[in-house]
Amino acid sequence: MLRDAWLMARKDLRIELASKVTIGQILPFGALVLILFGLAVSPDLTVLGTDRRSVLAQASPGLFWMAVLFAALLTLGRSFAIESADGKLDALRMAGLDPAGIFLGKMLAVTAQLAALEIVLGFGAFVLYNAPLARPLQLIVVVIAATTAITSAGTLYAALGSGLRVRDTLVPLLVLPVLAPVLLAAALSTEAAVFGESSGGWPWTLLLGVFALLYVGVGMLAFGPIMEES
C-alpha cells in the first residue's frame, strides 16, 4: 500500500512540476481571493473591546482558510481530472494497485501542493491583513491537521465525482458542506494561535485531528468501491 501511495504521489508531483498549474494558476487565484477579501472589509474598522485590533486582522484566520479551501477545490479537481481523462482510471484498475495506496498517494500529492500554497497565502494574509503571530508552533500544528482533513475529505469526494460529467459543479457542492466543520475548527484554532488567546484553541485543534484521522480512515476504506463504480 505505501509503495503504491509513494508511486502515485511521485507521479502527481512530477505532473505538477511539468505543468506548473498550481504555481501558475491556482496560487494567483488564491492570492486574488485574499486581496478581494481585503478590499471587501475596511481596514479602518476596529473590533470593540480590543486594543485597536482591526476587523480585517480579526477575520484573517477565517479569510485565510476560505482562500485555502477555494484553492483546494481547484487542486482536487485538477488531481482527478488527470486520472479520469483518457481512461486512466481503467488502467489503474488493470494495474491492480491497492486502492488505499492510490487514495493516500493522491492525498499526499494534493497535501504537498496545498502546503506550498498555504505558505505563500499565509505570508500574504499576515502582510495584507496586518495580523500578529503569537504562537507559531501551534499554528504549524493547526495547519497540518486542517490541511490533512481538507485533502482527505476532498480526495474522497473528488474521486466520487470523477466519473460524472457534472463533476466540476457537483464536487464543490458535495465537499463544502462536509468541510464546513473543518473550516470552523481551523478558523477558531488559527485565531487562538495567531492572537495568543487564553482559551488556547487546543480543543478545536484536537477536533481537527479527529476529522483528519476520520476522513483518512474512511477514504482508505471507501476508495476501492468508489474506483469500481467510477
Binding site: I15, A18, I82, D86, G87, K88, D90, A91, R93, M94
Partner: peptide, 16 residues
C-alpha cells in the same frame, strides 16, 4: 486484471 492486458481506444497516458 493483473494477468490480462487491454489496449483500448484511450491511450492511458499522461500528457504532461
Amino acid at each position: 486484471r493483473r494477468e490480462a492486458g487491454l489496449l483500448a481506444h484511450e491511450t492511458y497516458l499522461y500528457d504532461e
